[in-house]
Design a binder for these strands. Sequence first.
DNA 1: CAACTAGTTTCATATTGTGGAAAAATGAGA
DNA 2: TCTCATTTTTCCACAATATGAAACTAGTTG
Lengths: 266, 266
Amino acid sequence: MDKDDESDRQSGGIQSLDAALKLLSAMGGYLRPMSLSELARDCGMPPSKVHRYLTSFLNAGLVVQAGKSGKYDLGEGAIALGLAALARHDFVNRASDALPELCLESGLTVLLSVWGTHGATVVRWERAATPTVTSMGLGTILPLLNSATGRAFLTWAPPAPLQAIREAELRAARKASSTVNSQLRTEQDIERMTETFRMRGFSSVEGRFIPGLVAIAAPILDWQGRAQCVITLIGTDPAVTEPGSDAVRKLIGFCEKLSFSPIITG
Amino acid sequence: MDKDDESDRQSGGIQSLDAALKLLSAMGGYLRPMSLSELARDCGMPPSKVHRYLTSFLNAGLVVQAGKSGKYDLGEGAIALGLAALARHDFVNRASDALPELCLESGLTVLLSVWGTHGATVVRWERAATPTVTSMGLGTILPLLNSATGRAFLTWAPPAPLQAIREAELRAARKASSTVNSQLRTEQDIERMTETFRMRGFSSVEGRFIPGLVAIAAPILDWQGRAQCVITLIGTDPAVTEPGSDAVRKLIGFCEKLSFSPIITG
DNA sequence: CAACTAGTTTCATATTGTGGAAAAATGAGA
DNA sequence: TCTCATTTTTCCACAATATGAAACTAGTTG
């Protein structure tokens, strides 16, 4: 039949659907109601075809016929669809809805953090049944280098916004060798650490930020693999930080489920 | 052939398109990526059919395949379509044009939200010069009871579409008394609150949804007095929520100008 | 390793969408 | 009010196209 299929011929789809969607997106392109013949002309389809498609869109509520002029325009259904799609990108909300569940399953205190202007910021948290003494609350800002949460951002977030704080903390770490100091002194140290985290799929810290407590953290990634937010589990048992531990598996499972790209790229 | 066509047989449309759109709107109903078989089950279609439809949606960009899990979700195309459809709404359109101005004048971060399938959805926002820590972006869904934005819908939007979420949040609020709890437990509490808001002409919240931040919100009303969208100002100074404050006056003035019926019916 | 389960591809078939043309509907001018 | 011109909608015979079952892969679990 067609010697050489014209343009896009992606395999597998449905021709009439493809055409219909082309029409639909064409309608998205204008910002006023369009008459049938205008649409037909612009899409290079016979009017009868366009009319049949429009009827289906009409039934589905994606398109409405404006006024009695009979012109066609995008309708409520299209708005609803778009808002639903927008909501998918709302990682924080989807994650916080599921937070209590993770808390119950793991039996640990759970934090949900995002990257704010001043660093990793706790925006949601769920306290475990066995209350662990923490001074943590909503709005707490966690250190970048010495908290599991911060380290997760360090590993999976785009570096640019972190730069300032990263440098500041590194400088502070070098000077104050008196403190319970991290082994993190140089850029190389950091590189090595994040590489490990990236492989394992989670970051961790042991009693550094809060003595006596351990924490593990994993990112929720958008479709470009950037951390949108970070989930942290806090406990007392050092075994928690072991790769393959129950808590680790639950944490990564949780984050993987909410992420749009795989956390462990093996 | 068919003596009397079973159920919906709206005239004129295209069967495969109707089925495809049914699938599409089903996808809008969930707020997480769905697997092929889940979709097939829920729509009562054979998997192969669903797969073919999805391929077309994929080619059109309406749907993306999330991560390596292979699950399907609404994509950029759906967002574009929805925003295009939103632009038809005069209210949204006129409001978003004026948004930067309000942001400048008030010096606060400004949100423009509409009511979507899953709740109050941010569709436009303007960041203040003094950056405030927020986890907010396009598509963020705000809680109904514990955000200024949500409360504005609660006060000025028709109650029917809100009902489901209202009940869900109320139930959650009663259970989780452990959390930083709202004083909102009963229908009466809500009634009292909305009455106050209605008198003042704006809703407010202090550090509930986002600790350390305060917010005020007012509706843009159509000619029937229903909220078409909601404008929210976010700041850090608690004085902002005071009736008669500079921010409040600017907010209400802004909304009043764009509304088709008076906000304060005194 | 075998027995599942989930996702994708293939294929023969007739169901379904197609485009042209006819029929309504709409609108403008006289 | 009547006619002409344009746009929208309906009709129809034909074959192109979507269909569902089953085959084929890939990944998982006991």
